[in-house]
Amino acid sequence: MKPTHKLLFILCALLVLGFIYYSSWKLHLYVWGQKPRKSPPELAYKYGNLSEGVCKPGYAAAKMTSIYPKFVRKAPMFLDRNFKQHTKIKNYLPPFGIKTQERIIDNILAETKSFGLREDLDSLGCKRCIIVGNGGILYNKSLGSRIDEYDVVVRLNGAPIADYKRDVGTKTTLRITYPEGAIQKSEQYEGDSLFVFSAFKPIDFKWLKNMVFKEKLSRMDGFWKSVAQHVPRKPAEMRILNPYFIQEAAFQFIGLPFNNGLMGKGNIPTLGTVAITMALHNCDEVAVAGFGYDMTSPQAPLHYYESVKMSAIKESWTHNIAKEKEFLRKLVKANVITDLTKGI
Rank of each mutant, 00 (worst) to 15 (best):
Met1Asp: 13
His5Tyr: 11
His5Lys: 11
Phe9Pro: 00
Cys12Asn: 13
Phe19Lys: 10
Val31Lys: 10
Lys35Gln: 12
Lys38Ile: 05
Pro41Gly: 01
Ala44His: 08
Gly48Thr: 03
Pro57Cys: 07
Ala61Ser: 13
Arg73Ile: 04
Asp80Gln: 03
Pro95His: 00
Gly97His: 01
Thr100Leu: 08
Ile104Gly: 01
Ile104Glu: 02
Asp106Leu: 03
Leu109Val: 06
Leu109His: 06
Phe115Tyr: 13
Leu124Cys: 10
Cys126Thr: 12
Ile131Asn: 11
Gly144Val: 05
Arg155Leu: 02
Ala159Ile: 10
Leu174Arg: 01
Arg175Ser: 04
Tyr178Lys: 03
Gln188Asp: 15
Phe200Asp: 04
Lys201Asn: 08
Asp204Val: 00
Phe205Arg: 00
Lys206Thr: 12
Arg219Trp: 05
Ser226Ile: 07
Val231Leu: 01
Arg233Gln: 01
Glu237Lys: 11
Tyr244Val: 11
Phe245Ile: 14
Glu248Ala: 13
Ala250Gly: 08
Leu256Met: 14
Asn260Asp: 15
Met263Ile: 14
Ile268Thr: 14
Pro269Ile: 05
Pro269Cys: 07
Leu271Pro: 01
Ala275Pro: 01
Ala275Ile: 11
Ala275Glu: 00
Met278Tyr: 08
Glu285Gly: 05
Val288Asn: 00
Ala289Val: 04
Met295Ile: 13
Val308Ile: 14
Ser316Asp: 08
Trp317Gly: 02
Thr318Gln: 10
Ala322Tyr: 09
Ala334Lys: 05
